[in-house]
Design a protein around this nucleic acid. Structure first.
Lengths: 227, 227, 227, 227
DNA sequence: GATGAATGAGGGTTCATTCAT
DNA sequence: TATGAATGAACCCTCATTCAT
């Protein structure tokens, strides 16, 4: 395993290039030729290192999943306050997606294709991912600041929203002007969406018991433009 | 839908088959051969009717978009209560996705590929789609039952969540057993998720002025990073 | 045979369109679709009138050949002076090619493809075509103003030159500027070329014995190439 | 040409096969399949080496043009006598066409199609080709053995005739018997035609001044070609 | 006679993969 | 290990031709 001195290992370069390409055009749209070129290696060399296209895809997938799991876990145990932890989760996810825009793209493409390729090894990562949300909710309930909820739902509300928001960026950017006059801001950054989302879900999960009011009509009254 | 099974117009049959195929494997993964076979027409006939693969895709996309827009609009004006309307929106969307599982798949794949193919004609549908959420929020604020929020965010929270939840079905089903012991129910039906989501967002959008109860996180959006 | 009142017969329109198309891209390059469109008739109608592509081609060919033969014959018997007749032949050919630029194109394409399609019916036209030149030469010899020569050679010198000159027009036009500084005028009109050619061949066919003048082979002192 | 029969470079074999095929049926009639088979290579290999059909055609064209140019140049500078050089030019051309019967076919087909494909790189060859004839004529005039004439005309008379004569071989052969009784020998070899042609043009270009007789038709030619 | 729709047989091109060096 | 070259299996698309109306 004597790697070339001056740069990242060949395999790492291949994986990066592959992630980029898979994220751009999906599995069947990706061309091994393009990946090899992007990685700066010969096509035959790629096969020597990776085996074949399918295996390459699996490897990329696993690597990305591990990153997601790690990030979520990290964020989940960030603080003692479950509500804050939820927001932290959203922010962490947004940060991850910003740094690795390929991630939400590959995730959804993979899901859209029926998780055809998802290797069994992904199971462990899967548990870690859902575990993060589950732990926060459990703690929230135990401390009485959250009502019970299926972690799968909350997780999807969090991650699903951010995934689609991130994913839709080109589309939103393209139509941003067209809906401007509708008071819809399509080009807000992902971090802002995450902040809003963390807050929204935090509020939405408050226990009913809170009291019985919800004193309608005091704050909102005027328009929408302000904060 | 209206015509008798086998007398459906050729073009309609082609479009249905294409939606199915595109939804299953994406644009580049779809094979015109397969679409033609599935539609029960000769491949050359398909080209005679549709032009080429790209055009076929665009047509499918437009048709699906129109359905989404129609459904959302319908649901949005369902009742006078904005909060209920929001839930109705979620339910309608869930119903649509259940009947047309191909829809969320194609939508995300299209977005994931950078909205490469989205025809300009989709613009109108796009406005209708965002308009539905926007109208509800506006009304909610005007009647004082909701605080201001960027409709794009709320829309994404609603649709994005349902899309990913629907999308992830095969994956969730596959790993359902594996996380059962974690108190995470991965196999809840989409409608249930929609109900939860409508409720969650409705609560989350309640005006801050909810007096002094539910003391959590009253600061709104500014307090998320820490405790 | 009741033709449409307001225009040329359908078949004539088809033949014209076909000639145009065949001349532009050759037999295999021509598309029946394009011919039908150009002729303003339905594709199936074209088949009804013509049979198939091959037959259409043969018909066009025969029609064009007949025009060439007629023109040459006409020109050949134009006057009593063989030398003038030769020039007349060249001019007539040039005129024909100018009016029907498709003619030289189809002629050469047909020859280039090994006269694959040339129908036997073309034989008669063929004899008329060569007959014209042959008659002039024979008369020239009999009146002593021309030396003997294989009519096939002379014919080729005449027609071949004009065919290629006509054919090369787009090419010459394209490179005209590039060779201007070389004292080569590539854009001279076909008629001018014909005039030059008639003259050139007329001179070239003068009998050696043309008395003692036309200092055959004396001026060039070192004349090795000729007789 | 230099390498041993079967070890010829793959690309060379492809180009040869392509020239043969293009010459036989033209660009659109040629099938890549057939070319690959004839060259003894896999179709994909052909694409690997050449890019696509169009590029293949261009390459073939350029190669052929270069051969023509080289041959003409060589012949043009063969001797000091312009009249002899003209004959040498004709002979060289005939020799080239005999060895490469594909050449006149491709040349005319290309011209007939409007020089659609002629790459700009052909420009240089083009200049060399016309330059040969031009140089001979210029020298002929300077030494007083030729009258002024547009080199383009002379060149066409020379090359055009030989091209069509060569091209028409199958046709001539097919109808040779039919015109035999007409004193027209259709099956004379190309070399003979070239000899006749060289002589014919040589004579035809003799200066009028030679003596004073036979002032045929001098009007048309004097306008353009002089220096 | 005319027309929209259908169809089978390719035709050009791409692509994942392998092999010899 | 790395690389240029090769290959077979598709894949998208076209085209001459026919058929039902």
């Amino acid at each position: 395993m004597v790697e070339s001195e001056e740069s990242t290992s060949v395999l790492a370069r291949i994986l990066d290039a592959a992630a980029e390409e898979f994220g751009r055009v999906g599995f069947s749209g990706a061309k091994v030729d393009a990946i090899a070129r992007r990685a700066g290696v010969n096509k035959a060399a790629l096969y020597y290192h990776v085996g074949n296209k399918e295996k390459l895809y699996e490897t990329v997938l696993l690597q990305l999943f591990a990153q997601v799991a790690g990030t979520l876990e990290q964020a989940a145990k960030a603080g003692p306050d479950p509500v804050a932890a939820l927001s932290a989760l959203a922010s962490a996810m947004a940060g991850l997606f910003s740094r690795l825009p390929v991630l939400p793209r590959i995730m959804t493409m993979e899901m859209a294709s029926g998780a055809r390729t998802m290797p069994l090894a992904a199971l462990a990562e899967f548990r870690r991912i859902f575990g993060a949300t589950r732990d926060i909710l459990r703690q929230g309930q135990e401390t009485g600041v959250m009502r019970p909820a299926n972690p799968a739902f909350v997780h999807m509300a969090l991650v699903g929203t951010l995934v689609v928001y991130s994913l839709s960026e080109p589309l939103r950017r393209r139509f941003a002007d067209a809906v401007q006059e509708m008071d819809v801001r399509l080009d807000a950054p992902l971090a802002e969406a995450a902040a809003f989302l963390g807050d929204l879900i935090g509020r939405g999960l408050r226990p009913d018991a809170a009291v019985g009011e919800t004193p309608v009509n005091t704050a909102g009254t005027e328009g929408h433009g302000d904060a």
